[in-house]
């Protein structure tokens, strides 16, 4: 038991020493790395390093209902179930989960893929659109002003309208 205790103390000491050394050398570097990775993460791979291109609501309204156009909801499932653009496909954006082959095959048949979320900064839809574009999906763009902007412009939707943009 004493031996294990001694080993545990040594392990803890090594971890603390290594972490201290790491943080000190990082702080001393000119190109120091921030301790917390900023969102949106600039290190997404294998998807696009750049976010997707925007499309504004009036243009998206014109494309709505036309053959070859798909709307993709990048929000979580429960937000989608509460209300979504009519006919939208739910593909919740997840940093840790790359897009599946089935989803990519489904979207390859469309000419325009309009991704939307409901964040103030449109980050989830921006990143998902970028990832789709990187994966070879043609016409993948993100909707500026998101689901709230869509409803305010009179766009058709199913379910209930959100109270405002998400943080």
């Amino acid at each position: 038991m004493n031996e294990l205790k001694k080993i545990a103390i040594q392990v803890a000491a090594l971890l603390v020493f290594s972490a201290g050394l790491a943080f000190i050398t990082n702080a001393a570097r000119d190109d120091r790395l921030p301790l917390i990775m900023p969102f949106p993460p600039a290190y997404q791979c294998p998807s696009s390093e750049k976010p997707g291109l925007p499309i504004d609501v009036p243009v998206a309204l014109k494309l709505f209902g036309k053959p070859g156009t798909a709307f993709v909801d990048a929000r979580k499932r429960d937000a989608f179930q509460q209300g979504h653009v009519e006919g939208a496909i739910p593909i919740p954006y997840s940093f840790v989960e790359p897009l599946s082959k089935e989803i990519l095959e489904t979207l390859r048949g469309y000419r325009s893929v309009i991704v939307y979320c409901n964040r103030h900064d449109s980050e989830a839809s921006k990143l998902l659109a970028g990832e789709l574009a990187q994966a070879g999906i043609k016409g993948a763009v993100y909707l500026e002003k998101g689901f709230t902007g869509w409803i305010q412009a009179g766009g058709p939707y199913t379910g209930t309208a959100p109270e405002g943009h998400d943080e």
């Binding site: 290594s18 050394l21 990775m37 840790v96």
Partner: peptide, 25 residues
């Protein structure tokens, strides 16, 4: 980040500490 295993917020901390832990041990 490529491993798509960890929440993005912890990735930088691990990238800073892990190599030093390797070299010390």
């Amino acid at each position: 980040a490529n491993y798509r295993l960890l929440p993005y917020k912890v990735i930088n901390g691990i990238a800073i500490v892990l190599p030093w832990l390797e070299v010390v041990t």
